[in-house]
Design a protein around this nucleic acid. Structure first.
Lengths: 197, 197
DNA sequence: ATGCCTTGTGCAAGTGACTCTCAGTTCCCT
DNA sequence: AGGGAACTGAGAGTCACTTGCACAAGGCAT
């Protein structure tokens, strides 16, 4: 399975996503097309599939029952995964990100994956903390938005020659600071009848 | 064009998204399949296409140069559009939402659309306010996350028989309050779990 | 009027992603 | 040994989507 994905990514790097058919992937990986579909479902799946979804969910789940503030749980969980994903595995991750950003169909599939992960996480959070599910969705969506923005900002800087790259941690930190300031503004500007500044 | 979409949605309602081919849509709308593709690009496009994207962008743009706090601009713009979309146009909107939530391929296309709209909005914001683009992305992503959560919460309540529906405004307001509280928590717990640096 | 360009539309053929069904193989459990 | 679950492959079919071309209608200049 991992072997199939690796072969596929190599072919995509070599010839471009659109110029490679599933059949060619199957042949190069020495399996049948059926097998590719069985494991990855779609061609885009060959790019976006990874283990990090479940690991992130597990990392969050592990921390939730402890009564730890959920924000801290999220940040710890993200930091735990990010190091490996964005630093150690930097090369492959960049390649997959690049394919994703340059091909709308892959980007769409990725976005769907994120939405589904968010939904699962929100349920988990609501269950563990006795929160209303609607509330939990807002929390997860906000945090996920900040995280994803960090990922996008990281990628775009990394991909652009005139910007010198920084560690992913810094992008993550910036994004969360930004989230905090938006939150603060919301708090002030909330509904009519707010006090002037 | 509008005629084609209406016909398509009627067919989807009647027979289900998967049981309707583009050819059938074309025939029912008395155009050729080529025309359908020319206007909507994909089958999913028949569901997700609408005018609200551009209108939202315009509503934001119109407010930005005024020096109005960007959050207020966002809320006003959203409120301006939401009324029509979720109250007046409630029936069709529900139907399209239902198709979207029940068909991963449509959901993916919708998510992509949101991502692209966010990107455009972030650029607009950065330009109008002289913000760093990365910063602008965080702001837009946070606000969009809250908005979308409101939409999802609204839809799920609306679709569920045992919950009695509230006005969309209330979901929107709840979501933004939730966003504020997340922001506040971030502010306190700051700095992504790093001991060094 | 004649030509000309743009714009909108239809036609037709081709590609390849994806589905479904059935049949073989391996491996494990009793 | 036997029976069944899990994995894999073969083959045929559907249909979304692309591409290139031709054809018509309307404006605009010559």
């Amino acid at each position: 399975m991992h072997q199939i994905q690796t072969t596929a990514l190599a072919l995509f790097a070599e010839r471009g996503f659109d110029q490679v058919t599933i059949e060619q992937v199957a042949e190069a990986a020495e399996v049948s097309p059926s097998t590719v579909y069985r494991y990855f479902g779609t061609k885009e799946g060959l790019v976006i599939h990874d283990e990090y979804d479940d690991r992130l969910l597990a990392a969050v789940e592990q921390r939730l029952p402890s009564g730890m503030p959920m924000l801290q749980a999220a940040l710890e969980a993200l930091a735990e995964i990010s190091d490996e994903h964005f630093e150690l595995d930097r090369g492959p991750t960049m390649h997959r990100m690049r394919l994703t950003m340059e091909h709308p169909s892959i980007q769409a599939a990725g976005a769907l994956k994120v939405a589904q992960l968010s939904a699962r996480t929100a349920e988990q959070l609501a269950r563990a903390r006795g929160m209303a599910i609607g509330q939990a969705r807002v929390v997860v969506a906000s945090l996920m938005a900040a995280f994803l923005t960090a990922v996008v900002n990281w990628y775009l800087d990394e991909a652009s020659p005139e910007v010198e790259p920084r560690d992913f941690d810094e992008y993550l930190s910036d994004a969360f600071v930004g989230l905090a300031s938006v939150g603060a503004e919301v708090r002030m500007g909330d509904d009519p009848g707010r006090s002037d500044r």
